[in-house]
Design a protein around this nucleic acid. Sequence first.
RNA 1: GCCCUCGUAGCUCAGCGGAUAGAGCACCGGCCUCCGAAGCCGGUGGCGCAGGUUCGAUUCCUGCCGGGGGCACCA
Length: 571
Amino acid sequence: MTSTYHALLARVQPAFDALLAGADPVLRPSERSDYQLNGVMALAKSLGRSPRDVADQLLSDIQLDGIATLEVAGPGFINVTLTTEFIQSHLLSTLDDPRLGVESRPTQTVVIDYSAPNVAKEMHVGHLRSTVIGDALRRMNEFAGFRVIARNHVGDWGTPFGMLIEHLIDLGEAQAVASLSIGDLNTFYRSARTKFEADDEFKDRSRQRVVSLQAGELETLRLWEILVNQSVAYFDEVYAKLNVELTAEEIFGESFYNDQLDSVVSDLDSAGLIEDSDGALCVFPPGFTNRDGEPLPLIIRKRDEGYGYAATDLAALRDRVDLLGADEILYVVGAPQAQHLSMVFATARLAGWLPERVTCEHVAFGNVLDRSRKMFKSREGESVKLVSLIDSAVERAEHALSERDSSISGDDRRTLALQIARAAIKYSDLSTERQRDYVFDLERMIAFEGDTGPYLAYAHARIRSIFRRLDAPWEPSVNGFSLLTEPERSLALGLLSLPEAFESALQLRAPHKLCTYLFDLAQRFTAFYEACPVLKAPEPLREERLALCELTAKTLALGLDLLGIEAPQQM
RNA sequence: GCCCUCGUAGCUCAGCGGAUAGAGCACCGGCCUCCGAAGCCGGUGGCGCAGGUUCGAUUCCUGCCGGGGGCACCA
């Protein structure tokens, strides 16, 4: 099934090509009609003819076969109005289509690198963004039919582990495990840090411990594994709480690439890319300069012979291309890493690890700010625990439910509160363009009014409640849609534009495009809902309207699912 | 100093080179004997500044102003 947009374009393009090969019709959704052709003026310009003249000719050249009607307007726009027959036939086929008109094309392998928390360190709002955006992109790419491989590049290696292991020893293993298993990671990390900075003896031990760790000394590794295992179990809890599709099997932390780092250096060296700079082994990819305008190094191996994160990133990249067969690698990582990543990509290209056909893309996102537009921090100046944010959102959702005289109670209510809290948190994160800094305002996101996750979930639940009033489960038995009223037609057009919205969200790695679409659809629905009685309508209108309701509910549920948001039947 | 990014209504945000720049919140005024008022309808209110490209610029380019970030051994 082709989307409305492509069906139209297929009719329009030949007429434009006939006048000037490759001319862009600039087909766009329109507020004045259903679509408009904005390319007429530009075409007229290149042809040296008057826009009205060209428009008139196009009007007679474009073969629409009853799918739409055209009208010249203004200085030379062509307004496109879809025919009821066209909308109706598309609605009917969408009704039978579990994919709701979105095509699947299993054409490529996409590796998505997201979340990436640090072992023995609390997950905070920064991880929330990577996790939520990454999870949405994963779902979207999977739905597009691509082979998707998720990678959680957990920070489980490096110099901090010296002090973390020593702190674990000081605490005693049992005590440390107890503290970590209740998710008290901030305290653990902070204590280690404090000792490291204040106590020279501890600092020395920590440094020696790093050496043992890197040397693969068994007892050190055993202690390190305790930290890793406790943290992974904790991450799992957080992911479950967020309903994020990330498993322990998808964790490929920094340590995973340890034994590939030597070969990263030697391969870069034999490619003639490595330079020794003050004892550090560096690559100087062209086009990067430091603040003095000198070439900027990507440090592969530090002067102390430890590896920097560039080495790990390069090893991981090479692995993803060679072993995983990636055609596309998405890095859902904060914007501050932009330069680092583009240096890594450039170096991988130079080294020949990143063939032309494979693309690497930094899916960057902005900072999380508080209500006063400062970096989101707790009163003590620390990053705020992700779980505590989720928990307080759940608390608010529960409170709201209790005030609403809901028939849902007990465990169902707790589950529902969690679902609503997730919807609120995720939607507020995803509905803003990624690159912008984003204001985390629990108050607003859980207000349940306006452009929020709960509003969309509510719109869905409301539709489902219509069906609950029926005596028997509803089966579609429509033959057509008369679409007599404006709200019905508007809703129908909204339903048919899912493929376009999905496609642009997918291509631009822009979940907010999908959010915008869903909110618009929900508004079209509620307008329809106010104006058009469903259950009280006479047949066959009643059946048609039920079908519109069904399609809307399915579209909302699918769209929300692609964002990682649940759509409860009732709330 | 160089690079990246953002600047749209009081606040939070959409806006794919097109016609009169859209939402939500807040504020004001309406709508529940009628499928769920977490809703609907109406009102008030805006593209940082200056050039340029273009038939047409919030959108593309340049410069400036303002916020945020990055720029060699932490990841």
